[in-house]
Design a binder for these strands. Structure first.
Length: 546
RNA sequence: CGAGGUGUAGCGCAGUUCGGUAGCGCACCUGCUUUGGGAGCAGGGGGUCCCAGGUUCAAAUCCUGGUACCUCGACCA
């Protein structure tokens, strides 16, 4: 807000100061007009009070969804934009969430027989051109290394790329690793005895995205990519489906995000795959987010990289391949599935910190008593495997800590002051519902807290599922279809489709909605395509997507 | 890559119309008082006004060119 002020020219400084103090306007602008009379004109700009600033740190979800998302990422200290175009810095708290994901998934991969390895970041350009469809898909938007040396700028300051240091063959920074990995597998696989080869790698990849969004689409991101080789198509398909199940369980049990398992249409399929399976989650704005993919690659890469094995009959065959991955994008999914206007809400199974203690005291005496009890209780919880943090930071006040940990989504906050101590209880506040209650610190304390954590986990899942159900529709005509998408609460639409890419693209062009997947175990149902009117045997899931 | 917008202290911004001492809030530092939902008062530190060139006695401000970022589209294997 901007105001023009006129002051009587007597003790101006004092008047400006007082005006600002009592109105919340900041003192601003030099006098822009000094009349010959005894009045001076100013512009003043309104500056909100501290309370207002605090209350408005996070943009309301209902006001501007993408700003709300960016605010959560910033205020919960998950990540920030770096000075490198399209690349983010993942901050310690955001990274600790990724580390939790890594640990849980990695254990699952190991349980299902996989081992980790690491392949090069750089891929010779020629590798990418070996698999025809793969080329088509990955030809663009890759970062390419052309030189290997810098030198002092002969014309002045700084460094230049040494023109004499041009690479014979350019190196592409991996957008995904199929090519380098299959080129390696050729040397590792000779016999059916070498199969299956079940390998995963945790890595960074680069895709030179033109438009980036924190976690959802950045030029560089972190992921895991599994690449397996099998002696039969059946076994490879089984592997593809198994990993999809691993992802599904991870999404639903750990992230508390319900997902639809499905198969991609040919149009949405990974370049070079015969079938792409996926899990699709609904965000709070009704848009779909692909939360994981698993590909049955057939023999495409084996043929492109000449990976053959001798079967039991001593005949040479091409191997069958799969690949599957999830990325730091899941952090974006987590935010958009669960968070509210007060910040992040983390599911307890995933949360790096499940319980935070905030001690409250005035005197030194109280401090010692309260802290002693906090650490004692924290120990009990730790022994029960609960991840806890005692926030004994003396430079911050308790109110600050409450707000901060809420922002960061810690599922349970326990606050203890002298009064609680005397009553042998502690105040617990759950992040999902904001409910507070007093919990006894005696018998059953640990059980109560564990129960609370699993209640929260379940509740977050239920809320996300209820949201999805309330925004899942059936449409039988294009008109209905458009009405849903343009309405207040767009979401997933089950509709008949004639199975052609042409129709799929036309619908996308007209509505911006795409086919997210053909659900696995989808009930068969006679119908006609909403666009072409041609016969169809099942409904597929349409939605706008991230 | 198209269309808009923005670059001034760590962050958020005013100041640019009409050229003339570099400002405000938050954050930070020091001290005292405080501490059960983002503390108060007092004092203090911090600037290549995105970059380059031009006009001028004088440029954050005007002119030319560049560059970076943001939002929305297109693209997204």
């Amino acid at each position: 807000m901007r105001l023009r002020l006129v002051f009587y020219n007597d003790n101006l400084y004092h008047k400006r100061k007082m005006f600002c103090k009592y109105t919340g306007f900041s003192e601003i602008s030099t006098p822009f007009f000094v009349s010959k009379s005894i009045y001076t004109h100013f512009f003043c700009t309104f500056v909100p009070s501290k309370q207002e600033i605090m209350a408005n740190t996070i943009t309301k979800r209902s006001e501007n969804y993408s700003e709300w998302y960016n605010d959560i990422v910033a205020k919960a200290e998950l990540a920030e934009n770096s000075d490198v175009r399209g690349c983010m810095v993942i901050r310690p708290y955001g990274y600790s969430i990724w580390e939790r994901m890594q640990r849980i998934l990695d254990d699952k991969f190991k349980e299902t027989g996989h081992v980790n390895a690491y392949f090069p970041l750089f891929i010779p350009k020629s590798f990418l051109s070996k698999e025809a469809e793969h080329v088509e898909g990955f030809a663009k938007e890759c970062a390419v290394v052309t030189h290997y040396r810098l030198k002092a700028n002969p014309e002045g300051k700084g460094l230049i790329v040494d023109p004499d240091a041009k690479l014979e063959e350019e190196l592409v920074i991996r957008p995904t690793s199929e090519t380098i990995i299959w080129n390696t597998y050729r040397n590792w696989i000779q016999s059916y005895r070498d199969l299956p080869l079940l390998i995963n790698q945790w890595a960074n990849v680069v895709r030179w995205e033109l438009r980036t969004r924190m976690f959802l689409r950045t030029a560089e991101f972190l992921w895991q990519e599994g690449h397996t080789a099998h002696s039969s198509a059946e076994e490879a398909v089984a592997e593809t489906k198994q990993m999809l199940d691993v992802y599904t369980e991870f999404a639903e049990k750990t992230l508390a995000i319900p997902v639809i398992k499905g198969v991609k249409t040919p149009n949405e399929r990974f370049a070079g795959a015969l079938d792409t399976y996926c899990i699709e989650a609904m965000m709070q704005d009704g848009k779909a987010l692909q939360a994981g993919t698993s590909h049955f690659l057939g023999q495409n890469f084996a043929k492109a990289f000449d990976v053959k094995f001798a079967n039991k009959e001593n005949q040479m065959e091409y191997v069958w391949a799969t690949s599957w991955g999830v990325s730091t994008r899941l952090i974006g999914a987590l935010i958009m599935a669960h968070s509210d206007d007060d910040g992040l809400r983390l599911p307890p199974v995933l949360a790096p910190v499940q319980v935070v203690f905030v001690p409250i005291y005035k005197t030194e005496e109280e401090k010692k008593a309260v802290l002693d009890k906090c650490y004692e209780l924290a120990d009990q919880l730790k022994k029960a495997g609960i991840r806890i943090k005692v926030d004994a930071d003396e430079t911050k006040r308790s109110g600050w800590k409450f707000a901060e940990w809420e922002m960061k989504g810690v599922p349970v906050r326990l606050a203890m002051g002298p009064r609680d101590l005397a009553n042998q209880q502690i105040e617990s506040a759950r992040r999902d519902t904001k409910e507070k209650s007093s919990v006894s610190t005696g018998e059953g304390f640990v059980e109560n807290i564990s129960q609370l954590l699993s209640d929260i986990q379940q509740n977050l899942f239920n809320q996300a599922k209820a949201l999805r159900e309330s925004r899942t529709y059936k449409a039988d005509t294009m008109e209905e279809f458009k009405q849903i998408l343009e309405g207040e609460n767009p979401g997933f639409i089950y509709a008949h489709w004639d199975g052609t890419t042409e129709t799929e693209l036309k619908i996308k062009e007209e509505t911006a909605a795409t086919i997210r997947c053909i659900p696995i175990g989808n009930p068969l149902e006679e119908g006609v395509c909403i666009y072409s009117g041609k016969p169809s045997t099942q409904r597929v899931v349409f939605a706008k997507a991230y």
